[in-house]
Design a protein around this nucleic acid. Structure first.
Lengths: 325, 325
DNA sequence: CTGAAAGCGCTTACAG
DNA sequence: CTGAAAGCGCTTACAG
C-alpha cells in the first residue's frame, strides 16, 4: 500500500502538501496539486483511515447501538443508515448492546467512534446517561420521556394517528377502536405516545375512544373482542391483526364491508392479508438517513441541538378500509 | 482519557510493560502486573483501539458487505454476526456495496478492516475477485460457482432438501412439486442448488420431479397451476405460498388434507398462514456466527482454508403437512 | 504557497 | 522480567 510518503516523493513535495491536497485544508497551487494528484492515481493511493483518525482525533466512524434488530423497521433502517454514513464518508459499526450503561461505556472508551446512533430508545434509557456522562455525541432513534436538548428523530405519532383517523373519518367512521400490543417493557415510547395521541385526538374530534391491547400473536388476535358498535379498527399489532382477520372471517364478518381495518405495519405483510391491508407504513428508511445525517451534521458543525426530526407514517391504501355502511 | 503513559507513570513502569500486561505478550511478574492493573482501574483506562490497530497492523475490525438487507435472514444474521464479532473483541462495520469490484476495492484500500464477510454471494461475484486481488481475507455467506479454496458458510441445500423430502415421504407422499421463485439475477445460488438437489434426490429415490417457478408475489401464487396428481408441495417462494393457500381455499381444496405444503421460510410468517405452515427454517443466526468466527479464526491463525461450514434448515412442524390420504 | 517536525496512543523488535 | 526507542501513517500548528 502506498503511503503519503510515497506520494510526496513521487510528486516532489512534502508530506504536508500531500495532506493539504488530500483534505483541501490549505491553498495549494494548481501545478502542485496536479503533480500530487497524478502521483496518487499512479500509485493507486488510498489514505489510511486509521492513521488519519488517530492524527486528526476524529475517526469518522459512528456506531449504531441496537439491543436487537428483529423488530419493526430493522432491515430498512440499517440499510439506509449505512448508506447515509457512507455517502458522507463515514463508516458505521454495529454495537449489539443491551440497555446497559456499562456495556456502552466500555465501547465508547475504546475511542473508535465519534458518535453513536441509538436505536430502540426507551423512555428511561441507561445508555443515554452513559453517553451524556462520556460527552459522546449521539442521536436517538425514538425519544426518552424528556428528549429536550437531545438530538433525536422519531416517528411523528401525533401526525400519524391524525392521518389514520382522518382516513377513517373521511370514510364515515366514528366508532374507531385502537388495538395495541402488550409490551415486555412497560414504558415503550411508541405505544405510550400513540395511545396518548389517540386519546387527545378523539377528545378533540368528539370521538369516543376505545382502547384494547393484546399480546402480539395471531392467537391473541383471534380472541379479540371488539367493543360493540365498532366500525373501524386502528391496529398497532400486526400479528394480532392476522388473528383478528381470521376470527372475523370465521364469524362471517366481512372486511371491509362490515369492519374497516387500518394497520400500522410493514408493506411486506400487507399483501399477505385477505383483503390486502390498508397500512400506515413506518418511515424506517427515512429515519435511518435522518438519524445518521443529524448526528454527522452535529459532529461536523457543533452548535445548539438541532430540532427533532419527526416523520409520520405513510398511508398505503389496501382493500381493508371502506365507507361505513 | 487516560493513556498508556498515564498508566505507566502511575504504576512506576515503562509503557512497554503496560502494553505487555494489556496484551499478555510477554511475561510480567505478579507484583508488576498488579501495580499496572490497579493503575488501570484507578484511572478508568481503556485502550485506544485506533492506536493499537495502527501500531499492530491489525485493526480487529471486520466488514459485513451487504448489497441489500431486505431479503431472507437479514436481521437475524446481522444481529448474530455483530454479537459474534463483539464476543471475540472485534468490531463489525457495515459496507453497503453492490456487486461491484471498484466500490469494494476502494473500501478495502482504506485499511480499516482486517477482513470481510460477504453476504448475498452470487455464483459469479466481482467482489470476490476484488478481495482476492487485494489479498484481503474474507468469508462468504453463500457460495460462488466454484468455492473451492474460499472460506465459506452456507445453507446445506442438499441436506435441507433431503430432510424436506424425508418429511413428506414419511407421510406417504410421492408426487411432490417444488415451487421456486423467479429471480432477478439468473444465477442465484440457493435456487440453482436447491433445484439440483431436488432433481438428484428425486432420481435417487425414484420420485418423479415436478418443478415450477413463479414471481415472488401473492398474485403469482394465486395463479399457480399444480401438476395433476401432486399431493405435496415444497415451497421456496414464501409470498407465492400465501397466494397458493388462498387459491386452494377458494377452490375448496383442503390443506393439509388434500395437499401438504412444506415451506422454506421464516418463523415470522408461518403462524400467519392458515393453516400454520410447516417450515424449513433458514439458519440465519447460525450462519452469522459461523461466518464471523470462521473469518476471525483465519485472521488469528492463518493456515489452509478451513472446510466449508454447511448448515441445514430446520424442520418446524406446523399444520400444513399431513399423511397422504 | 510549502516544508520540517512534533505528535496522535499504541506495539514491538532490540538490549540488557 | 523490564525499558528506551523506533515506528505505524497520517494531521497540524509553526515557520518561512
Amino acid at each position: 500500500m502506498a503511503t503519503v510518503r510515497d506520494v510526496a516523493e513521487r510528486a516532489g513535495v512534502s508530506i504536508a502538501t500531500v495532506s493539504f491536497v488530500l483534505n483541501g485544508t490549505k491553498p495549494v497551487t494548481a501545478a502542485t496539486r496536479n503533480r500530487v494528484e497524478s502521483a496518487m492515481s499512479e500509485l493507486g493511493y488510498h489514505r489510511n483511515v486509521l492513521a488519519r483518525a488517530l492524527a486528526a482525533r476524529r475517526t469518522r466512524i459512528i456506531a449504531l447501538a441496537h439491543p436487537r434488530l428483529d423488530n419493526g423497521f430493522g432491515s430498512d433502517f440499517i440499510t439506509s443508515a449505512s448508506r447515509a454514513a457512507r455517502a458522507r464518508g463515514y463508516h458505521l459499526v454495529l454495537w449489539p448492546v443491551d440497555n446497559d450503561s456499562d456495556e456502552i461505556g466500555e465501547l465508547i472508551g475504546q475511542g473508535l467512534v465519534d458518535g453513536v446512533v441509538l436505536m430502540e430508545v426507551l423512555l428511561e434509557d441507561a445508555r443515554v446517561e452513559a453517553l451524556l456522562a462520556a460527552g459522546t455525541p449521539f442521536a436517538l432513534i425514538g425519544r426518552t420521556a424528556d428528549p429536550a436538548g437531545l438530538i433525536h428523530v422519531d416517528i411523528d405519532f401525533d401526525q400519524s394517528m391524525s392521518d389514520a383517523l382522518d382516513h377513517l373519518q373521511e370514510l364515515g367512521h366514528q366508532d374507531i377502536t385502537l388495538i395495541t400490543a402488550t409490551q415486555p417493557l412497560p414504558e415503550y415510547g411508541p405505544k405510550v405516545r400513540s395511545e396518548a395521541a389517540y386519546r387527545r385526538l378523539c377528545a378533540k374530534r368528539g370521538l369516543r375512544p376505545f382502547l384494547l391491547e393484546c399480546e402480539p400473536t395471531v392467537a391473541a388476535g383471534r380472541a379479540i373482542q371488539l367493543p360493540p358498535g365498532t366500525t373501524a379498527v386502528i391496529l398497532m399489532n400486526e400479528l394480532a391483526g392476522f388473528g383478528l382477520l381470521s376470527q372475523l372471517a370465521g364469524a362471517g364478518i366481512d372486511v371491509p364491508a362490515d369492519l374497516s381495518i387500518l394497520s400500522f405495519g410493514s408493506p411486506a405483510l400487507a399483501p399477505i392479508a385477505e383483503p390486502q391491508l390498508t397500512i400506515m407504513r413506518a418511515p424506517g428508511a427515512i429515519l435511518g438517513t435522518l438519524g445518521v445525517d443529524a448526528l454527522i451534521d452535529h459532529l461536523e458543525t457543533p452548535g445548539p441541538t438541532p430540532p427533532p426530526q419527526l416523520h409520520p407514517c405513510t398511508l398505503e391504501p389496501g382493500a381493508s378500509t371502506t365507507l361505513r355502511r
